[in-house]
Write a protein that binds this DNA or RNA. Structure first.
Lengths: 346, 346
DNA sequence: CAATAATTTGGGAGCGCTCCCATAAAAGTG
DNA sequence: CACTTTTATGGGAGCGCTCCCAAATTATTG
């Protein structure tokens, strides 16, 4: 049995309260007493009991990272591990702990129920002080619930509600840069493979595509727009649908989809970038490893994760400082070979 | 303020204890009372307070997944997301929650301290009922501590201690199959790129390599063994070192390293598989996507994760059923193009 | 139908901590 | 140096639950 506060107190010859003060860095303890108590703590290996503490303080120092079921299939996309690393880093830095909720679509009868159940247990059971929600579809029921229950949360991505805090990248501008680059290279029949259009990131990137064309006075040919789902397979299928309309360039809303698209193009006997230029989005590590290396829009994924946590912890530690927290990080066009420009020549 | 047990009790006209019985499915409650209580619970949205419960029961229904700092840099390796999915799935299925501890090497002054701190807080603070430790180096200080503190844990990978529970794949046999396959194809100068040799998985795969050669009476040329670190970059560096010794085949102890090796071979003007055959290990999704598709040893990564959790939960729920829990899952050779055999022809 | 056994219910104690308030000790003041 | 102010310490109450035991109710049986 590990020691309790009370036991430490007895050993140090002081009261429970004094030990508590020492542990919680309360200033009003005489230095020699403080030292004596620390000594006992060190010797006994005392550690406050998390549950007891939470019960009394109503805080857990645990935050949740929720990745809704709709995107769990994408989990092999390196986007998520990188995001998680950012999240975990920031948690470590602030001495918070991370609870991970992934909802898989497998082995679940009534999938809605699984997510519901977990929501109910974890959030209403006050396991968590707050949550980071990553890339949920915009109609995910989690948002209304979080708002209603008053759970502090930060979204990675954006969400149109006056009380929603989020961290996002400028998807519209990123996409526009990508398409503008293709336009600059002389392409006119530029297709796009979008993400699932029930996500803002996907909508915004499509919007960037539209804006770039509009700025050049090029009418949008709806045949050149195919909806994907951010996965490689989705990219393949979408590319297949685009093939008959003979685009000379493709802007894929994720690197994974770009990779899929390139495969389909090759299978159709087309060269990348000679016959068709391809640009991706994300700049995952794979982007520089595939052949040809992918021109893509870099988003600071890891930073997105840590920023979300910083924001959340800020809200938790000074709740009075109300207001809505929103951060939009910039993107950057990374030019490699797949768009058909020699980097040096640019 | 969410309702408490006591409040629900008052509304239902029963005592605290009775509501507790209803919530915990205790049989001794009259059906009509049970129904009445459920009704109130439903209406009020009552949810037991996790911390209060833990304090009383000394269980949290939370298990930890610990990925020690030594491997966090490998986190972009798809191995981890896949493992995590397995772990998360099994947790969901058993109504446990998952706490994730990643230790990054970045931003840490005294890195040992960070891991220590977290160990101290999380484990001794009894946030967790038990932990799954993934791919830690065999001298990681976490193992002695877990054993000493009596924290229930399951390792993914193996560990030589009579009280260590683990789930592993048969790395020796897997590696042997891979190398035997190369031998069967007529190769004699077979090099290997090992993982970091402070991990058992790496040692075991090297052992499999040695066994395969020994079985054929081929002496091991130590120049043909290069230590990598499971990353692509590590694979490149190792391959560079091997190049002067002109192997005709390479067995890389991970797919990521195989990918790195292939790049180096190409840069050296060698064709894969024509000039040098390459075999990997893991069968991550990338393996079938690269060019040429990788012949590799498949290990059931996701199953490894869920199995570890199942074992752990088993231990937690019936602690009296002592004994050591060990599972070794089989591997499977997946033949693709990189070893230079036409699949059909086999 | 009294006596016994089984089932159902309520309340006290306690899990280990924090926080408030009262008291004790030390320091500051005219 | 009596008096107020500040600083340090101890103890009670309570966070929301479970678990045990005793009391009340119901069912069983000779």
């Amino acid at each position: 049995m590990p020691p309790t506060l009370e036991e430490v107190a007895k050993l140090a010859g002081v009261s429970r309260s004094t030990v508590s003060r020492v542990v919680n860095q309360h200033p009003n303890v005489r230095p020699e007493v403080r030292e004596r108590v620390w000594e006992v703590i060190r010797q006994t290996g005392y550690q406050p009991h998390a549950a007891a503490r939470s019960l009394a303080t109503r805080r857990t120092r645990v935050i949740g990272l929720i990745i809704p079921q709709a995107v769990t299939t994408l989990f092999t996309d390196p986007y998520f591990p990188i995001l998680m690393r950012g999240v975990a880093d920031a948690c470590n830095a602030h001495n918070y702990h991370l609870m991970l909720s992934l909802f898989s679509q497998r082995r679940v009868h009534n999938s809605r129920t699984q997510q519901d159940l977990l929501y109910q247990q974890v959030l209403r059971g006050r396991y968590l002080d707050g949550v980071v929600v990553s890339s949920a579809p915009l109609d995910d029921p989690i948002f209304p619930r979080l708002l209603e229950d008053g759970v502090p949360f930060v979204i990675v991505g954006r969400y149109p509600h006056e009380r929603a805090n989020y961290v996002d990248v400028d998807n519209v501008v990123g996409a526009r840069m990508a398409v503008e680059h293709l336009l600059r290279l002389g392409h006119e029949r530029i297709a796009t493979i979008t993400g699932p259009l029930n996500m803002f990131a996907a909508q915004d990137r499509l919007e960037g595509y539209r804006q770039a064309l509009a700025a050049r006075g090029i009418p949008v040919d709806e045949h050149l727009i195919a909806e994907g789902d951010f996965t490689e397979q989705g990219g393949r299928t979408a590319m297949q649908r685009l093939l008959p309309y003979q685009p000379t360039a493709v802007f894929a809303a994720s690197d994974m989809m770009a990779v899929g698209a390139i495969k389909v193009l090759r299978e159709a006997g087309l060269q990348v970038p000679e016959d068709v230029a391809v640009v991706g989005f994300d700049d995952i590590p794979l982007a520089s490893m595939v052949d040809p290396p992918l021109t893509t829009v870099r988003q600071p994924i890891e930073q997105l994760g840590s920023m979300a946590v910083e924001l959340l912890i800020g809200m938790l530690e000074s709740p009075q400082a109300g207001g809505v927290h929103r951060v939009v990080l910039p993107t950057e066009l990374v030019i490699r070979a797949s768009c058909g420009v020699r980097v040096r020549a640019l």
